[in-house]
Design a protein around this nucleic acid. Structure first.
Lengths: 150, 150
DNA sequence: AAAAATATACGAAGAATTTCGTAATATAAC
DNA sequence: GTTATATTACGAAATTCTTCGTATATTTTT
């Protein structure tokens, strides 16, 4: 990296406000294809490769060995763990959906919205149908956050 | 794609509820490196390659020709347009920041949050410092949305 | 006018991700 | 038990994105 003499504040602020999740141990960031697999595992629980592959084949058109290979890589990365006691291995996610979303959101917020959570939130609310119940939940969260503020 | 006989509703719903922005002409999706360049152009306006490259070199450590090449590719994709009247070309973004954010957000929402805007919003609000003013803005948006509901 | 600096064009290397084909092995069916 | 089927292992091709080096052309400096 370029050692900036003009704007040292930028990198400094990054250190001071390091989000909590970044301080915990390094979680491998899933790629897009890996994320699709994780979603299946989160939704239906421990699966064989075939189960995952069937679940994906509605959206995606790639061969069985592709899914297999990805899941093998994910095992190496530690994104999933597998039970090898029977010949057909059973895979399960080792990372939680919430943690992964947190991590991906942080990255996305930086790259696409330059870190402005409120801009992102307003865009998300403005362009996507959200039920009354969900809006109410968000409102409650707002209350809670504001109450905890000075 | 797999022609599903089991769940034809899925693809159907995608057609029925096609978001408005998707119906407009196809915008090329910027890659991550391209997005960084766009951000400079959005922030400072029309630029030469050198200006963009200098602006980026605080965060990024790649050569001048890399930036040049990327901007040439972006021109082909139609993400930027350039004025070639003088030897040093002047580039400007052809896509707006808001439109691009909308597009990226939609994609992200689908891949990471399975389309649940409220989940994303709550995660974003929960994990990132947001000022009182911003929270108030969001609250007002909530009011506006709920008022427009049945 | 020659030399130096700066710009674009463009092919191709490098890197990361996704895809597949084939071999080896185990299980199931006959 | 032999054949057929299903599963894993693994290398390597295909793809996409990023990076760079070199050639060529233009402007600026000396």
């Amino acid at each position: 990296m370029y050692s900036s003499k003009i704007n040292p504040i930028k990198s400094l602020s990054n250190v001071l406000f390091l989000p909590i999740w970044m301080m915990s141990k390094n979680i491998e960031k899933p790629t897009e294809a890996e994320l699709k697999i994780l979603k299946v595992l989160w939704q239906v629980g421990p699966c064989t490769v075939r189960q995952v592959h069937e679940a994906l084949s509605y959206d995606k058109d790639s061969g069985y060995t592709t899914t297999l290979k990805l899941m093998q890589i994910m095992t190496e990365k530690g994104l999933v763990r597998r039970n090898e006691s029977s010949r057909t291995h059973i895979y399960e996610a080792t990372v939680s959906e919430a943690d992964t979303q947190k991590q991906l959101l942080h990255k996305f917020l930086e790259t696409a919205f330059s870190g402005s959570a409120s801009k992102l939130v307003m865009q998300a609310l403005g362009n996507h149908r959200t039920s009354k119940e969900e809006l109410e939940q968000i409102r409650q969260l707002l209350d809670k956050i504001e109450k905890e503020k000075p």
